[in-house]
Design a protein around this nucleic acid. Structure first.
Lengths: 238, 238
DNA sequence: AAGTGGTCTAGACCACCTC
DNA sequence: AGGTGGTCTAGACCACTTG
């Protein structure tokens, strides 16, 4: 564990997940936690801030930190989760089929999406995800060659994220996503088991690295009945 | 403005929005901002944390705070936004039609959803949202009478959120949401202009107050082509 | 009045990036 | 080496809730 506040966060998160604190009850006060973990109050507060951002608790001034019902939604916080990670989490039997893999100069739309100049080299990848025997997701992805100089079909068959974070030592940091429903294209119909569905759910995402570099654009096309998105949203006051 | 760090946040956010800082460039260092705003470094850091959580900047250790491309997605952060707020933002001509309004004892499913005991009184409200002449959203809502003792049809026609936050003086704090696609029900078909759409996008949300009280459950049923959801997601490391 | 969280400070040391 | 952000501390005062 790197930092003290992350340790405290982990500890308390585990205790909440394993129901050592009842939903609706209060966590020990910041002062008590200071005693228990032998760290300063600001450090405890950083841990509690994380817990609250991830939907474990809600802080109420003058009262304390209320433990939330963690089970109400399965994944109480949304994140930048790769297909692989999602699979491990759900323990599903999944397969990835690479149906397109090439390097090419960026078209004008591709350049816009990756914040590049037209003609800059990009990787164009299309992958079909088969879950429990059915082809349900079509991922159409663009990667900047400037960020990922080398890429192989084999890497695409496993996990590009694992390659980027493991082998290349880069850190994926955040993503901006948009979710809409669109008519199924002939490509969708060719590569997905749509079972008569006329539309697909499209998740477009722009993924950024640690150093704020935009390196990936993805359109993830889901069969509607196999799509589910969970979000934990704090109110934003302007 | 209440606090110093919120003031600094507002100031910098405004300057980023009005392009006083180029996307990709660096914000002044924390030390320089300390000088400029005459506050401590921790206060500056709280403001920068907010900016980063809202998608304005990305902090890079050893380098600085990189200004992000704010325009890439229209609403770079998701929040708990009411229908009214969304309308004002989009300046759409919208109408609300209350098709159901009653107080009743909670059924067992209603009780589960609002974390109440079966038989506890709840408000059951159904509202149809008409945007630009078309009925595109059906909201099915449950409110706890314990939290909202008085409610009228008139309030439902305007904005329940405005009533709760304005008249009742309560503060809406956060929501847990789930998005799925479901077959259109006869109710959907009766009240929405589906134009042949066979499915609807369903956003289920549990809304909480400031004091961690769960007070609202909503199933918001959207005509697919009029649905759009934008999310800004930081990577969650476990 | 006592306890809780919310804000703010000044100073320290560390890890990382760039020159 | 110097600048940047990341972490941590001890102490202070304020605002809110509860008895």
């Amino acid at each position: 564990m790197k930092s003290k506040f992350r340790f405290v966060y982990q500890q308390l998160a585990d205790e909440i997940r394993t129901s050592r604190y009842e939903p609706g009850s209060l966590l020990p006060s910041e002062h008590e936690l200071t005693d228990r973990f032998q760290v300063s109050r600001e450090t405890i507060r950083k841990a509690l801030k994380l817990l609250s951002e991830h939907g474990y608790i809600q802080k109420v001034q003058g009262k304390g930190s209320v433990v939330l019902d963690f089970a109400r939604l399965e994944f109480p916080f949304s994140g930048v989760m790769s297909f692989q990670e999602l699979n491990e989490k759900l323990a599903l039997s999944a397969l990835t089929d690479v149906i397109r893999f090439e390097q090419q100069p960026a078209s004008s739309t591709a350049a816009t999406r990756l914040d590049l100049t037209e003609g800059d080299p990009v990787w164009a990848v299309e992958r079909v995800r088969t879950i429990e025997g059915e082809r349900v997701i079509l991922d159409q992805e663009l990667f900047s060659v400037a960020v990922i100089p080398k890429l192989t079909r084999e890497i695409c068959e496993k996990s590009i994220y694992a390659y980027i974070e493991g082998t290349l030592g880069l850190t994926i940091s955040f993503a901006k996503k948009e979710i809409v429903v669109e008519e199924a294209t002939p490509t969708d119909q060719a590569h997905l088991d749509l079972h008569g569905a006329t539309h697909v759910v499209v998740v477009r995402s722009y993924t950024y690295l640690d150093d704020a570099t935009l390196f990936q654009y993805t359109a993830s096309r889901h069969r509607p009945d196999k799509f589910r998105f969970v979000d934990f949203a704090r109110r934003v006051l302007q």
